[in-house]
Design a protein around this nucleic acid. Structure first.
Lengths: 299, 299
DNA sequence: AGCAGCGATAGGGACAGCCTATGGAGATCA
DNA sequence: TGATCTCCATAGGCTGTCCCTATCGCTGCT
């Protein structure tokens, strides 16, 4: 049994005419007759009463017709659905990103992606890089933005550097600046003993900041800790302390921004996906939009 | 898109292995790879992530899989259903017959048919020959038993003589015999003035009997008329009159049977179906059983 | 009787699908 | 590190199948 044969069969059933059915199917009449014969032979039953000028379905033909129609309709559906998914008219994209990026880069990029591919469902997992890496490896995510380098060895991931993010100190505008005198830049050592508003455990920024302080020989001082990005910015705004955040976040916070002294503080954001399989088209497309967005917004 | 390709596709999806899928489908591995490639090319989307030793479905593949399974299942269903209908394991047979035959021959034959083909639904239309002929031509019946010759010209029917039925007179056992003296046979003329129990209009027997009386030069006398076969036999049993019925019916009625004098009264029963199309297999099979039953029961 | 319409049949050509042989990239192990 | 194995992709040849044109046979109409 072949789909072509079912198509010919329904054409004859519709037109009640071999010649006209052949025309409809853009095939010579003998070819169509032959295929119908082949189908009948395979099924072991005549499908049509071949009376002169009066082709009608046999019992077997009547039985086959609805199933043939359904099968053909399903093939059309299959073709369409696959192409819709392939062309990103439908689908799903599971993106992981650390909270700091979810508060800055991610919304803009996802907005652009959604404008281009409104049929694709977007699912964002906001988590620390290590958890994101695990989720990627477990197939729970299609793509993740992570902070590199990772402490341990990544389990079969493909990562590509995306951007170098500058870290800055934010403080409340009405309060004394975090550095005295004419200086407009801060050093890590200046954080010693300064009250910091700190993110909850799991934030890459928390690990990064404490690691930097320890490298400078002291343990950072927290006045309040445990909140998400917005909460920490709120703490700073309320004068509870200062905080180290990416410049991208700092710029849109409305807080006083103090960059670090040369060479500054940086962290590298990379795009990661499973290394053993190529990511879904939606993921590749998001990656493209990400890079376009960065190339466009930062020159 | 071809059914074979969908089969190969599901085989790979099931086994997550091209080589093993090829074995399962009894085909060389390159042939299967080629067909998958062809399917992917036609759909414009990769269906599998081809990672070493780790074949997984892409989004497009995940989308296609359930539809492919359904299509393949439908083809199997189609194959099975058509063959069941063709082999009379299922189906429908619409038989028309005049009431006199429905009271005698038809139940036995349908019983035999049903014993052989229990899956075939039997639908009986009990009606006069002329109505049956019309129903046949309109495609409402597959097969009909009719009394021949028909008065008018049959509209494109194929008829084949089935049996010659002898007509006899039935009367109530406790009543005087319809013929006096030593005679055991009756003539049509003897019906003149005799009270007859007569069938409702539409019965072939009614037309046949009145026609015979008229041919003998008199109009028959009805004491009661209008019932079906059983009712008429009941009237006779109750002594309301005598009746002309086929011998086959008379024999099982328990009434006194008086045959007609030589050459007797006969009518011819034929099997009819549409002449422009061959009847369904169920109808041909019933015809066979009919003839077998008659050859078996009357020697 | 002749003609037109329609489906079946015959015969030949092109192409598709299948085969075997082989290539090439990882994984495994000595 | 090199040898081997596994597994999928590619190449080339062959066969079967599908489609084509030409034609036949039958039926119904003029």
């Amino acid at each position: 049994m072949q789909l072509q044969q079912l198509r010919y069969f329904t054409a004859v059933a519709d037109t009640r005419h071999f010649t006209r059915a052949a025309e409809r199917e853009h095939v010579a009449q003998p070819s169509l007759s032959q295929q119908i014969r082949a189908l009948e032979r395979e099924l072991g039953a005549e499908l049509f009463h071949r009376a002169r000028g009066h082709i009608t379905l046999t019992d077997a033909g009547e039985t086959l017709l609805p199933l043939a129609r359904r099968i053909l309709a399903d093939t059309e559906t299959a073709r369409r659905e696959v192409q819709e998914v392939a062309q990103l008219r439908r689908g799903r994209l599971r993106l992981g990103a650390p909270p700091s990026l979810c508060a800055s880069l991610v919304p803009d990029v996802l907005s652009a992606f959604h404008a281009t591919y409104p049929g694709v469902d977007l699912i964002v997992s906001e988590d620390g890089s290590q958890d994101l890496v695990r989720a990627l490896a477990d197939g729970e995510l299609d793509l993740a933005l992570i902070i590199t380098p990772l402490p341990g060895q990544a389990p079969a991931l493909a990562t590509a550097e995306l951007l170098r993010e500058e870290l800055v100190v934010v403080s409340a505008p009405g309060r004394p600046a975090p550095v005295a005198g004419r200086r407009t830049r801060i050093r890590v050592e200046d954080l010693r003993g300064r009250p910091l508003a700190m993110f909850r455990r799991g934030y890459d920024l928390r690990e990064f900041t404490t690691a930097a302080c320890r490298a400078a020989g002291f343990e950072p001082t927290f006045t309040v800790e445990g909140g998400e990005m917005d909460a920490v910015l709120g703490f700073v705004r309320a004068g509870l302390g200062i905080a180290v955040v990416p410049s991208m976040v700092a710029e849109r916070s409305g807080l006083r921004v103090t960059p670090f002294a040369t060479p500054g503080m940086h962290r590298v954001v990379s795009v990661a996906h499973r290394g053993d399989v190529s990511p879904p088209r939606a993921a590749r497309e998001l990656d493209r939009i990400l890079r376009a967005h960065l190339a466009d917004g930062t020159p």
